[in-house]
Design a protein around this nucleic acid. Sequence first.
DNA 1: ATGAAAGCGCTAACAC
DNA 2: GTGTTAGCGCTTTCAT
Lengths: 341, 341
Amino acid sequence: MRPTVHDIARAAGVSLATVDRVLNARPGVRGDTIVRVNAAVDALGYVRDAAAANLARSRRFRLAFVLPRVDTAFHAALRAEVAALRPHAAMDRALIELAEVPAESPAALAATLDRLAAEGIDGVAVMAAETPQTRDALRRLRTAGVRVVTLVADLAQSDRDHFVGINNVAAGRTAGVLMGRFLGRDPGRILVFAAAMSARDQAERRLGFDRVMQADFPQHAVLPTAEAHDDPDLAARRVAQALATHGPLQGIYCIGSGKRGLARALAEAGLARRTTVIVHELSPQTRLALEDGTFDVAITVDVGHMVRSAVRVLRALAGGGTIIPAQERIRLDVVLRENLP
Amino acid sequence: MRPTVHDIARAAGVSLATVDRVLNARPGVRGDTIVRVNAAVDALGYVRDAAAANLARSRRFRLAFVLPRVDTAFHAALRAEVAALRPHAAMDRALIELAEVPAESPAALAATLDRLAAEGIDGVAVMAAETPQTRDALRRLRTAGVRVVTLVADLAQSDRDHFVGINNVAAGRTAGVLMGRFLGRDPGRILVFAAAMSARDQAERRLGFDRVMQADFPQHAVLPTAEAHDDPDLAARRVAQALATHGPLQGIYCIGSGKRGLARALAEAGLARRTTVIVHELSPQTRLALEDGTFDVAITVDVGHMVRSAVRVLRALAGGGTIIPAQERIRLDVVLRENLP
DNA sequence: ATGAAAGCGCTAACAC
DNA sequence: GTGTTAGCGCTTTCAT
């Protein structure tokens, strides 16, 4: 039989309440009593029963995901994973809500965060760009005792408790080394596509990519960024433009979303399967393009893991458990046709 | 507030005990009472609190990892992760033990499994090769009500409840496509290293690799498997032999463990950084070799994730919760210098 | 066939 | 500072 708080109390000659205070590092216990209790804990090899503790607390955790209302496969996946986790989180006494705010509207975001704080939320996972208004709102949240994790895009350390996402410079570097190695020795031209070079994570990917190309693969020319704004026709025109201006294209690196039209544009230009294409995020379309060879690599992240990690971390921060750091490291997934999940 | 057994009892006009009997499908309840209780369950949307149930039952889960006593970095990592998870599992009412059995001894393995069954274990995670004796022992285990997951190497579906590991054919295919793309158009020679071609997972990797090379990169010649048995000197001699027999080497695919001597052998042959090297498993040595460019790619698996997944699945199967399938999918990690974790 | 009551291991008011 | 006591949601004797 494993020792319980009763055994500790008896062994240390104190009451249950005192044992509880010591175990939870609550104030109001004399130093030598603390020592006595801890000695008993060690002597008996006591381990706290998390389930019983949570039951007794009957504490519920109210958590919220605050996501921009953007219509990409990535955002849809994020919403779906949040919804999918809800029942499991409920069994774990965590109530998850999903708040969507207009993209690029710091004011709307701030209003939502303030509302959540007022409603007594315990933790918030927020995906947002860094703006002064957002920083202020997050600071108010945290001052109100709400735990905050940033999701996908990080903010300054001081404004959040934890970041759930990948290192985008490393993602860009990975794309770079794969592009360089796939293209080989012969000089080539690489077109870089971006949705819009606003987001910090896209800039970081670009940075990592450029650094690796310059340092390790100087034989290739990386053309200026082309923006396609999620528009297939525009994407097709950008490819045509690049071909006209610079000549044949050996590689395409698609840095963010906005690759929905890319496969079509490549087919129209007769470049499908003849150009090395590296993209980010594994959407259903990306999957198809990988399967038929139009795309070569997708560098992606397990959205489900991110959402689960955010919930685990918020729960732990809000006082409902411990975290296993290795479990919360978000991995960069390199997906080829051969290892499509 | 989520409904509890009390709410169900009140709504159905019965006592707690009766609700419990119905919920757990125990006999001694009239048909129409069962119907009334179930109606209340549906009406109130009751979900049972597994933690509270296990607490009341004071049910503990005894789980065991049964691993071969082999001295590789991979096995060491596995043991370390099991040890690291123990305290967390303990808080979760799961007692994890680690049993090591002599490698390649089905008799010893069977004896260990029988002992665990006799001791009343709830679940076992076993890493073993498929032999008749092993199959029989597992069948006895499962007949005794013990839940079984296979770890790293799978066995026939009928002999286990779940498999925790990767698809090794896909791993080999991934190695193949990366090798083919990295080497490029010019014909090359590829040496394949194996620890010993006994284990089924190594054979599967080889199969996947060969298929991709034949189908998509016929310009390259894949040399017969060289075995190095974890011996650095032997590895060096094998490389020398291959060079002497076949001429220059463009690629090396190291299929299993036994790559400890490979880096040295490559350096001695003057091939470090001039040969494309793809290996499996990310050990400390592999990490160094990736950092200094001796190795190009490591195809690996997150051992910590595997161990945690095995424990979660065994607990769930033994009756202590539910599983999220996506969370238990073990991913194939493609690690380059640029995305070293 | 059904119910009352005493826990499981821990926490949290509220006393002292 | 420290102790008493009443639960958390569910299970399990033991009565009826």
